[in-house]
Write a protein that binds this DNA or RNA. Structure first.
Lengths: 116, 116
DNA sequence: TACATATATAAGTACATAATTATATAATAA
DNA sequence: TTATTATATAATTATGTACTTATATATGTA
């Protein structure tokens, strides 16, 4: 049978799984599947300090799973679709429950950043 | 879109990923996909003490991912195919490289336990 | 300019984790 | 029975991790 991730060895796979084996980071990835997010939105969603959020995002970025883009005073994070393990990650995330509700809540609180 | 694992919430998913985010346990699961294994075979495969192996197996068992069966003096471990998160686990493991080579090596060293 | 907002980094801390060695338990063989 | 093999558990230790608060940096605004 064809191996669809020839570069995904045990070492790399376990690193990725460890990274996603944290509830906050896993949910960040699921959220980013539907919307880009800035740091302050994550701070509003998770019950955690801003530095805590930034540190989780840094780990995801270091692993190549997300990208950051500054837009004005905000830094937006998005999935890195060019990541070589994207197929693995997608296959994993598709098993998780949709989190769009979180964005609806944000909107309701007026905390959604649109940033023209 | 249908969610195929209605019971797999973020909490549970991150627990499972953390469990598999260890190289030894991840490889154990991949090995068990093709062959049941007794503890001493794992000890021969991994460069780790016997208690270390037993402790990893315990965690996999506590999470319901594997089952144990005593056969004579050996305790064999196998995948728990009735596990409610089996679909998630399978989807994950299918991305990993086949490990049958390890069993070939074991056989060559005369360390494979067949246990009639 | 000075001030406010958004984000990142540094430092510290509590806790979790994965390994080890020592020991206990269970099955088998002599 | 005693000894041997296989496995599990207990105790310990070193390291890693996920937070926190404090501070630095960068952007935007008055």
């Amino acid at each position: 049978m064809m191996n669809m991730d020839p570069a995904l060895d045990m070492q790399k796979a376990s690193q990725l799984l460890k990274l996603l084996g944290d509830k906050t980071r896993l949910m960040m990835m699921k959220l980013l599947q539907s919307h880009d997010c800035c740091v302050c939105e994550f701070v509003a969603i998770f019950n955690m300090s801003q530095p805590g959020i930034s540190q989780h995002l840094r780990k995801l970025k270091d692993a190549g799973l997300v990208k950051e883009t500054r837009r004005g005073q905000w830094v937006f994070y998005s999935l890195n679709r060019e990541n070589e393990y994207g197929g693995f990650i997608d296959d994993l995330l598709k098993h998780l429950p949709d989190q769009n509700e979180r964005f609806v809540e944000l909107e309701a609180q007026g905390l959604r950043i649109t940033c023209e």
